[in-house]
Design a protein around this nucleic acid. Sequence first.
DNA 1: CGATAATCGGACAAACTCATCTGAAATCAG
DNA 2: CTGATTTCAGATGAGTTTGTCCGATTATCG
Lengths: 144, 144
Amino acid sequence: MSIFFSRQCEYALQSIIYLAQKKQGEMTTIKEISSHLNIPFHFLGKIFQKLSHKGLLHSMKGVSGGFWLAKPAEEIVLMDIIIAIDGTDIMSLCVLGYAECNSASPCPMHNEWKTTKENFFASLSKKNILDVAKEIKKDGYRAA
Amino acid sequence: MSIFFSRQCEYALQSIIYLAQKKQGEMTTIKEISSHLNIPFHFLGKIFQKLSHKGLLHSMKGVSGGFWLAKPAEEIVLMDIIIAIDGTDIMSLCVLGYAECNSASPCPMHNEWKTTKENFFASLSKKNILDVAKEIKKDGYRAA
DNA sequence: CGATAATCGGACAAACTCATCTGAAATCAG
DNA sequence: CTGATTTCAGATGAGTTTGTCCGATTATCG
């Protein structure tokens, strides 16, 4: 029942926000994250593989291994994660599904959708995950 | 590669806009619509069944049968079609995928997403398909 | 009436996303 | 070194959405 972002992307966002709540450089296992956030263990493994390949996470194998953020939390914005997982199509596709819709021959919702999405993506590009993590802690908000 | 609305919903929107370009009460076949809009014939049949059950279309079997709008085009808004096909979940689900997100315990994107979607849905609820059809004709815009 | 052409509705197939399984490689503790 | 634990990577399975098929029903027209 996910909307707008894929399930994978939702899980990635939630997990990276979770990592941002940790001390910088602290290592965390998939096991811990999947149980805390209620995300399927093996599926999260796949997602973290992708995020590692994209350069957002670092990892270490072995008994005391795990994952940690490749950059300080304040330098990672939500949009980075979305682009890493879902790509950039979401920013350009026609909301009514017309294949030929573009700025030169816009569909009837083109301009309103353009404004809507640009504003929203702009705020996703401003939100760094350190602030997000603090906000969640402050409210005592607990992820699914 | 559809976003926001399901494929079915996109097809429904495009098809009903197509019907709105016809004279009021004029009957049109699935065959014509599917070939003009490049929508799979049998799939569109299913979608139109659903739209008929929901009361947005009327239909007639037989040699000169087909479908027509159940109401004048100016009385049907885009949101009616979206709700008929995709339902109302899209209006309430958390954009980051947190199960426990709501106005009482909002996620970090909750309020921005709320504003974004409410504005967009409001404009979808204002747009009647007669205006949309005219706009498409005026621009010479041709659906996929 | 009989042929044709359209929707109706249920079953089925294909494609895509979500999720799991398994074995290998790396790291660490004893 | 050996056993335990973790990520890595490819294969496989499950579920959902998308798309197809077919027989039945209904209306039109010659």
